[in-house]
Design a protein around this nucleic acid. Sequence first.
DNA 1: TCTAACGCGTACGCGTATGTACGAGTTATA
DNA 2: TATAACTCGTACATACGCGTACGCGTTAGA
Lengths: 193, 193
Amino acid sequence: MVDSAARPKRRADAERSIARIVAAARELLSSDPNAKTDDIARAAGVGRMTLYGHFATRAELIDAAFVEALRAGDAVLSSVDLGGNARDAMARLLDSSWQVVAESAALLAAAEEVLPAGRVRELHEEPVRRMTELIRRGQDQGVFRTDMPLDWLVNVVHYILHGAASEVRAGRLAPSRAADVVTRSVQSVLACP
Amino acid sequence: MVDSAARPKRRADAERSIARIVAAARELLSSDPNAKTDDIARAAGVGRMTLYGHFATRAELIDAAFVEALRAGDAVLSSVDLGGNARDAMARLLDSSWQVVAESAALLAAAEEVLPAGRVRELHEEPVRRMTELIRRGQDQGVFRTDMPLDWLVNVVHYILHGAASEVRAGRLAPSRAADVVTRSVQSVLACP
DNA sequence: TCTAACGCGTACGCGTATGTACGAGTTATA
DNA sequence: TATAACTCGTACATACGCGTACGCGTTAGA
């Protein structure tokens, strides 16, 4: 179940079931991090036993859903043009990141609850690396500040992103304004003081 | 159990037990939001049945612990001088807020899980009001920006505060540097662009 | 000193969710 | 078409945690 390439002996219908289960898991866990395996199986249109045939534990299932969400997110973010002025590139990256983060916020919470902390960070490696590199480039260009640790700058961007997602979910921030306030806030934090 | 003044017929030893239970709840829930009532009773040095004698449900206990934490926090924050230049006042307020928030982050998570959302916001009314007023004053003085909703500005401060607390807890940010990066980050977000 | 309030242990009931065992029917694929 | 893989239902074993019932010993406080 770890990787589709790891077990080439799987039948086509099994492959299909797994895909549906993972998709259902992403869907449900993205709105309720406490969604039960039973609900997920039902939503996937398979029996609970079929699910357990492919995922030995709940944690394994969440891991798979999380990996899939990260993969999908990476597909979006890797297509963003990060060239040219770092400030402009950041605006473009945030614009895409915003939706990705908002969509999977609850799923992230579920993953953090059942997966070892190292695993979560390991899977976030790529998006973190992307953001880190961009900020570093901005520092080299002289448009981003250097008076705080680079790690903190990366993280504060994440916290603002997730914060905006929470506000939207709670109905206290209009979705249409979210991208704007996120961009303004982040650019202010990153700009040279 | 709601208020110490509500039932004047309580005996002194009961009063003492309740205080110890609430203190233990604050202590344990502040490091693990999933702490069990059993653990809390044991930590308080009372039997589980004694605990249930004073708090009918787990939610009621968490509410009491949360109220107590807010009360303690308010005692600290209300002593901060918010006069003069808003920018300087914000620095002072953040300096005190930082520890208060870090201490009770997990307890807040526990409260958000079992208490109705309205209750959590209701109890946060005072600290939110304090921060809101200060930012508004800064806007009037012309030192804080006005190009984003006031609510968002208040919330982004909270998210940065809680973010820093998470980083410290995870060992990725030195506690000694936390206050500094929080202040720098918040001031940058609030400053006129 | 008397009594209601309190402390507290044991045992129980209950709901929920995870994961297992068995077994029979169905379907992909060599 | 043979067979191994897959689906999936029922039933079961467990574990956990909340909250209750009962009951007896202790203590505060009028």
